[in-house]
């Protein structure tokens, strides 16, 4: 679904991502793991266009999206969340839902935000994420867990085919993690592909079909969870043996 080849990005003297050649499998729940500072978030930012690579290419399906601006990449059907949950704090929950745009036609832009069909769709996602009762609250009034759900729901409004989640379980209580996993599984069954960066190993190993391991800016192995778990290179990366 996403194929990167020789992706590289350095800041000053520090190389954050080097020669990353990665394949994200369509229709699956892909996970991206690795020790802190191994370049996972930088890789996310490179794929979604937030930063531009020094060299290498990113392909989405058969389209070369290297260096395209984030909103154009989003229009192709890529949605993402951020590591430290990012929502629009001083807009209402419902309005947060209506920001995402897939196609931009002038008439739609000038139309009021109150389009009933859109609002119904937004409410549908809010119901599924379980925060529909908060729709008139300002987003900053939500608990952290609710904000994470809102961020995911807002991304879903654009009907992305591929959803990149940056540490969805970070700072979230176990009950909510449970709910998130269920939701991700359901969405995956409905045809959404996922790429998830996550530190919670139980969650990653229990949920994903394909695991990519990063160490020091480059992928060191990839495969089904069972295989990755027993790979000596992964143990080395994590334990530093």
């Amino acid at each position: 679904m996403i194929t990167t080849a020789g992706l590289r990005k350095s800041y000053g003297g520090v190389t954050a991502v080097r020669d990353a050649t990665v394949e994200v499998l369509p229709g699956k729940i892909n996970a991206l793991i690795g020790p802190n500072g191994s370049g996972k978030t930088t890789f996310f930012n490179l794929v979604t266009g937030l930063i531009k690579p020094d060299s290498g290419t990113v392909h989405y399906r058969d389209t070369d999206i290297t260096g395209r601006s984030p909103h154009r990449i989003a229009h192709l059907g890529l949605g993402r969340t951020f590591q430290l949950c990012r929502i629009f704090p001083r807009m209402t929950v419902l309005e947060n839902m209506l920001v995402a745009v897939r196609r931009t036609r002038l008439r739609e832009l000038l139309a009021g935000i109150g389009n009933p069909a859109e609002i119904e769709r937004a409410r549908g996602w809010l119901r599924r994420t379980g925060i529909e009762h908060m729709e008139t609250a300002e987003a900053r009034e939500l608990s952290y867990g609710q904000q994470k759900l809102l961020e995911l729901a807002a991304v879903l409004m654009a009907e992305p085919e591929l959803i990149l989640l940056d540490e969805p379980a970070g700072g979230v209580n176990p009950a909510l993690i449970e709910r998130l996993v269920t939701l991700i599984r359901e969405l995956n069954a409905e045809g959404h592909t996922f790429l998830v960066v996550e530190h919670n190993m139980d969650m990653v190993m229990g949920m994903s079909d394909h695991v990519i391991v990063f160490d020091r800016g480059a992928p060191i192995c990839a495969g089904p969870p069972r295989q990755v778990r027993s790979d000596p290179r992964v143990l080395e990366a994590y334990l530093g043996v």
């Binding site: 949605g79 990012r86 629009f88 001083r90 995402a100 745009v101």
Partner: peptide, 11 residues
């Protein structure tokens, strides 16, 4: 509110 976030949502 958050320009990068807006951009990533397709704005």
């Amino acid at each position: 509110e958050d320009e990068d976030k807006a951009e990533s949502l397709g704005v």
